[in-house]
Design a protein around this nucleic acid. Structure first.
Length: 876
RNA sequence: GGACUCAUAGCUCAGUUGGUUAGAGCGCCACAUUGACAUUGUGGAGGUCAGAGGUUCAACUCCUCUUGGGUCCACCA
């Protein structure tokens, strides 16, 4: 084995071997099914560190489960990401000088451009996933926009339409002028900005003033709403006014609505049904009440004022129209005041512009309507999945970790509005709806007869992502799906909290509706990765880090470990290169430890049972390892990746490398035990650091047998027992003595090479481990404490006292200080314990073990205090 | 307006059903250096767990409030 581990030499070759082995494919495995559907990365570019974290989490889990003997499936794929991808390509084209890509290329031409980009991006992404060491089944690779997935999309659309859940309606939508497309409420990003609130009167004879930040929309007002209990306006309710507003003849009915805040502005709200979601709701309510008001669209899809806005304003941009309206109001003496206020506006998450509310004929998914065969709405299903389980079946319940996200999810479900399904872009699943005059047909294929025209629009990208957990398994093809049925519902899903609403909810909706199943049993929500200073990684901030560059420099294992260490569910974590460096060191340490162990193993055996310990160090290490096996297993089972990694690191480095291997050099003859320990730790490390462990495994056992499918270590029920009481805490005592001597040596600046004589109250434990103490603490001879000379300095560890002879060079003052410091540390502890133990309530209420433990601690501390006192007296 | 979350060593973070003399990594200080490893080893300094109350025999851990960061949702006419 080489002196240092060089990841580059091994990684690609190992990945190839894994792939060729066929064990990424569960069809070649046996056991209980375990499945994870990889959240498909968007084909908008390359993978970032967040994806790298996700791959690490999923692959660690899947490797762990595979080694446990499960039939594991990690299904890879990518997402066509409709709007995001088209927006990206259009942006690139505009940067290249093509001002209007849609007009320039036409539908098919632009689609071809996007397709090219998507394919390229896809290839890059898949390669990156491989570089991360992700053990996914490439034979089941899926894409949200491929044939099978499109089939699923069309099938679901048709079914929902037949169930009456998808309807067509003329309603106010969120419209991105820049993107020339709608977007759903979930796709809005709210930003704070300053705005002017204008107060004005519609006309001379209108009885009161109203306030607005959008004077230009007032050209489309058809009512004025006040709070039903607002006394100021009581007498006007129900009246109708006809006003001349900036040259427009407006009919305004005074209506009431609970939504109106009497405290805001003047307490009277000009209702613009066409350009405000809440106003539109009032319009609908009025209609339902049988007292309809009008709807006048004064802003068009191009962001300009329409002819309905009046000749003076038609064709102006919104901003121009606003200025003009304000100027006109001032001129007409209708303007009252203006003030600056904070306002939050919705912007498009993909195009970045402030969205306009515009009324349009669109298709919607009704979340409140009863599903004919179920007597429940989609909203009900979404709720059930996280509360009682579907149909009250606890087995059909999704558990979110950390739990707090459950509440967020449910709050959102309760306030859910109908889902606007259509997007006026070209990249995406084309709507399976056909028109001929007034006739409408739904289905993927063109209906019989002439004159049918397919809808121009495409579906919201999340519609296909919502189907991901089962469309990837072959649904709606019954045969294909049945073959994969064991993997559904999937076992585990991990995702960032930022797509909780966008994705998690829709997957649950789609699965519950189509299959009457939950999509997965457990969801693990991870936080966002931030840079060293806690900033988000982003293109515009220029702080992005390419995972491939990190891999190139430090290796994949180091990247994986550094990403997962320090993460706790639901919380953001920071990424910086020092962390990767530390992980790289750990990887190398593991390599070198293995190298050393291998040198001390006579003939490595791949199947080796835990050998009987021969020395104290052996039993301590084997017992300790046994406990760690259990802890790591439990931590991984409960998705505590960081904890599992940390305790494994601690065992490997702090216990094994720093102590046991050093002792092995002294005691010698440990071939079997080292063989066993090496096998076990390589297995335990494998899910975290697949490459280096597999590389070491190959160094030991050749490339034939793969660690990836070795059996996960089992912890034994019983530890090795020691007959003597002293042995129970024996090993820690030996370590403490060695550390104590080392510490004294450092304090008295005894040359490291110089061997000294120590005096210890001897017992069997000391005698048996004398050699270890001698070598590790650089001791010439161990003599009995009774022989200690005048002026020896010492320390106490539990029942054992040890001294070193400084041959008259004791610095009394310094030593006094040292001992006093020690006493100052122990005495308050003793006092505290005494107080606690003398408290009757404590004795009465605390569990027996706790009381016993405290008593023991007190005795030990007291003893130590006594000895320290003696030492202090001896100094004088 | 409604809610969530974080505050622990210089820095980044663990601390999962309340019982440790509160931990790790990095950094810092001192020392070591020819065989597993300088991507190293040894020793050490460093925290009244944001603040104030409360519950409890016992609080970093549970409750309330305060302060300061971050996030989400709703409304914003």
């Amino acid at each position: 084995m080489e002196k240092a581990y060089e990841p580059k030499k091994y990684e690609d070759e190992i990945y190839k071997r894994w792939e060729e082995s066929g064990f990424f494919n569960p069809d070649n495995l046996e056991g209980e099914p375990y499945s994870i559907m990889m959240p498909p990365p968007n084909v908008t570019g390359v993978l970032h560190l967040g994806h790298a974290l996700e791959n690490s989490l999923m692959d660690t889990m899947i490797r762990f489960q595979r080694m446990r003997g499960k039939k594991t499936l990690l299904l890879p794929g990518t997402d066509h990401a409709a709007v995001a991808t088209q927006a990206r390509v259009e942006k690139n084209l505009i940067a290249e000088g093509i001002e209007h890509p849609r007009e320039h290329f036409g539908r098919e031409g632009l689609l071809e451009k996007i397709r090219e980009y998507a394919e390229e991006s896809k290839a890059t992404i898949l390669n990156q996933i491989k570089k991360m060491g992700t053990s996914c089944d490439w034979s089941r690779l899926a894409y949200t926009f491929d044939e099978d997935r499109s089939k699923a999309v069309n099938t679901v659309f048709k079914k929902m339409h037949e169930d009456g859940l998808i309807y067509r309606g003329h309603r106010v939508v969120n419209w991105s002028v820049k993107g020339q497309s709608t977007c759903s409420d979930d796709e809005l990003v709210h930003v704070e900005r300053k705005a002017k609130l204008y107060t004005f009167k519609y006309s001379e004879d209108f009885p009161f003033t109203i306030a607005t930040t959008r004077p230009e929309t007032k050209l489309g007002d058809t009512a004025v709403a006040v709070h039903p209990k607002d006394k100021r306006y009581k007498k006007y309710i129900g009246k109708e006014y006809e006003v001349d507003f900036c040259g427009n003849n407006l009919k305004l009915k005074i209506i009431t609505d609970e939504e109106v805040d009497p405290e805001f502005g003047t307490g009277a709200l000009g209702v613009t049904p066409a350009h405000s979601p809440t106003d539109f709701e009032m319009y609908e309510k009025q209609k339902a009440k049988g007292e309809p008001i009008d709807l006048i669209q004064v802003i068009g899809g191009d962001g300009k004022m329409t002819t309905k806005a009046g000749g003076e304003f038609a064709g102006l941009s919104v901003e121009e129209a606003r200025e003009k309206v304000v100027a006109r109001l001032k001129k007409d003496g209708l303007f009252v005041s203006e003030e600056e206020i904070d306002q939050s506006v919705g912007t498009s998450d993909r195009f970045g512009d402030v969205v306009e509310a515009i009324p349009m004929q669109q298709w919607w998914l009704d979340v409140n309507k009863e599903i004919p065969s179920r007597k429940k709405s989609l909203r009900d299903l979404m709720k059930e999945a996280l509360t009682t389980g579907l149909d009250g079946d606890d087995e059909k319940k999704v558990v979110i970790n950390p739990e707090r996200f459950t509440k967020l999810y449910l709050d959102r479900v309760n306030n859910l509005r109908d889902w606007c399904l259509y997007r006026q872009i070209w990249w995406g699943h084309r709507i399976p709806v056909w028109y001929r005059g007034e006739e409408i047909q739904v289905g993927a294929d063109k209906p019989d007869g002439d004159g049918w025209i397919q809808d121009e629009d495409t579906l919201d990208t999340w519609f296909s992502s919502g189907l991901w957990t089962f469309s990837t398994l072959g649904w709606p093809d019954e045969k294909k799906f049945q073959e994969n049925r064991d993997f559904y519902p999937t076992s585990w899903m991990q995702m960032g909290y930022e797509i909780l609403y966008l994705w998690l909810m829709r997957m649950i909706l789609m699965s519950a509706y189509n299959l009457d199943e939950i999509p997965f049993k457990h969801v693990y929500i991870h936080g966002m990765l931030r840079d060293k200073d806690g900033q988000k990684f982003s293109k515009s901030a220029g702080n992005g880090i390419d995972p491939l560059e990190v891999i190139e420099k430090y290796g994949t294992d180091a990247l994986r470990y550094s990403l997962m260490s320090g993460v706790t569910p639901g919380n953001d974590s920071r990424f910086y290169l020092e962390k990767v460096e530390g992980a790289r060191n750990l990887v190398n340490k593991l390599w070198n430890m293995s190298r050393f162990m291998l040198m001390n193993i006579e003939e490595p055996k791949i199947d080796i049972e835990c050998p009987e310990p021969k020395t104290l160090a052996d039993s301590w290490t084997l017992n300790s390892l046994n406990t760690y096996i259990r802890n790591i297993h439990d931590s991984l089972e409960s998705y505590q990746f960081s904890v599992a990694g940390e305790i494994l690191r601690s065992f490997t480095w702090d216990q094994l490398a720093d102590w046991y291997l050093e002792i092995a050099k002294i005691e010698g003859n440990k071939s079997e035990i080292l063989n066993y320990i090496l096998n076990v730790i390589l297995k335990l490390w494998h899910p975290f650091m697949p490459f280096v462990t597999e590389a070491i495994w190959a160094e030991i056992y050749g490339g034939e047998k793969m660690l990836m499918v070795e059996k996960w270590p089992e912890s034994k029920k019983k530890n090795f027992v020691c007959d003597d009481d002293l042995y129970l805490s024996g090993y820690n005592l030996i370590r403490d003595i060695i550390t104590g001597i080392r510490s004294l040596r450092a304090e008295y600046k005894i040359e490291p090479a110089k061997k000294i004589i120590v005096y210890i109250s001897k017992n069997k434990l000391i005698t048996e481990n004398a050699e270890v103490i001698k070598v590790l603490a650089r001791v010439e001879e161990i003599k009995d404490l009774s022989e200690k000379p005048e002026g020896a300095v010492g320390f106490t560890q539990g029942a054992i006292e040890a001294c070193i002879d400084l041959a008259g060079s004791v610095d009394t003052e310094k030593e006094t200080k040292r001992i006093q410091k020690e006493i100052d540390k122990v005495s308050p502890f003793v006092l505290g314990l005494e107080k606690k133990l003398s408290n009757k309530e404590f004795a009465k209420n605390a569990p027996k073990e706790v009381v016993e433990k405290e008593k023991q601690k007190l005795n030990e501390a007291k003893e130590k205090l006594e000895k320290l006192g003696e030492q202090l007296i001896n100094l004088r």
